[in-house]
């Protein structure tokens, strides 16, 4: 995949739009407490695409759901802050949150076709966003508005398409509809949770292009959740790598790929097949993601970590490392980089 966004410097220096601090979301199940999100912090700035990457079950989607306060029982946001334009979303009333969703913060999902209601026309579902957020309830919403929304995401024959039902559309088309829906109010922040995972590669590129274009046009912030390092490389300005409910590394994309610090990130990058390079076997990270109910006492990655053995580190399995700034703008949670005086 080629990349064209990296020539543009990440929009930094401005005030963060979203600041997540020490977010914890636990699920209280019969088997025990599942620490799905366990102390995650990051910021998203206006005009920036923040990649959140990690394997399934590392808590990246749950982080997004927590920001929108859409965590279902038995899950609960236990602590932390999610400051959106300086106001803590986690302290807002349900009514205030409902008003923000879809208007100031929008979200799109992994499986676009099942994310649309099968019994309602596309136009109905598009216009619903306008309907629920309009200030003056007496002003009717017009079908033309739905057509405009579809045109905005490059759907050909939009006037006819609004009368379709979701089952009459392809996955890529449905994801465009989802994007159109999420763009209705030009939100400040778009959360895209694996937006292209269920799509063909060509469609995937189109959808990613669309998201990037909308970001450029509207100076919107994007929180892009994915497990695909290729998508991260192509899209993100800055990346947070998550592992077992925590952030283990955070760096600008180029830096992360050129010089990954955390052994887990290195493992992820090494496991990407590179075109033209002949390898007998792809690198793998041995072992499995730890059980989120019964986490290892020290570093969560320690049981799978080769670097721990190579460097003969003893405290990894006893004490959890902190997220420290190892290099300017490059943070990592690993005992390799943390000396006693940084604690």
């Amino acid at each position: 995949m080629t990349s064209n966004n990296k020539d543009k410097p990440p929009a930094s220096g401005n005030e963060p739009l979203l600041q997540v601090r020490d977010l914890k979301t636990y699920f209280f199940t019969r088997e025990g407490t599942v620490k799905a999100v366990d102390g995650v912090s990051f910021t998203v700035r206006r005009g920036e695409i923040r990649g959140i990457v990690g394997e399934s079950g590392c808590g990246k989607s749950m982080t997004a759901m927590s920001i929108l306060r859409l965590v279902d029982k038995p899950g609960r946001i236990v602590s932390g802050e999610a400051l959106f334009r300086g106001e803590d979303l986690l302290k807002k009333s349900r009514r205030e949150m409902t008003a923000m969703r879809g208007q100031q913060i929008s979200m799109i999902f992994q499986e676009p076709k099942s994310s649309l209601n099968p019994v309602l026309k596309i136009s109905t579902q598009l216009l619903e966003v306008l309907r629920v957020h309009r200030d003056d309830r007496s002003v009717p919403v017009k079908t033309e508005a739905a057509v405009e929304m579809l045109r905005g995401v490059g759907i050909p024959d939009a006037a006819r398409r609004v009368d379709n039902y979701p089952h009459e559309m392809s996955g890529g088309m449905a994801q465009r509809v989802m994007i159109a829906m999420s763009m209705a109010y030009a939100p400040d922040l778009l959360i895209a949770d694996e937006p292209t995972t269920a799509l063909d590669v060509t469609i995937q590129a189109q959808v990613l292009d669309l998201i990037r274009k909308l970001r450029d046009d509207r100076d919107m912030a994007v929180m892009l959740i994915t497990h695909d390092m290729g998508v991260v490389a192509e899209m993100a300005d800055i990346v947070t790598v998550m592992y077992a409910g925590t952030a283990v590394e955070e760096a600008p994309t180029i830096e992360l790929f050129e010089e990954p610090l955390h052994p887990y990130t290195r493992g992820l990058i090494n496991s990407i097949p590179v075109m033209g390079q002949v390898k007998d076997r792809l690198e793998v990270i041995p072992g499995r993601v730890p059980d989120l109910i019964d986490l290892p006492p020290g570093c969560r990655f320690a049981p799978r970590c080769k670097a721990r053995i190579e460097h003969n580190l003893t405290r990894c399995e006893i004490q959890e490392p902190h997220l420290i700034e190892a290099q300017p703008g490059h943070r990592v949670r690993c005992w390799l980089y943390e000396s006693d005086d940084t604690v």
Partner: peptide
């Protein structure tokens, strides 16, 4: 989930 996410 989509309906909730769009503010319904």
């Amino acid at each position: 989930r989509t309906a909730r996410a769009k503010g319904v």
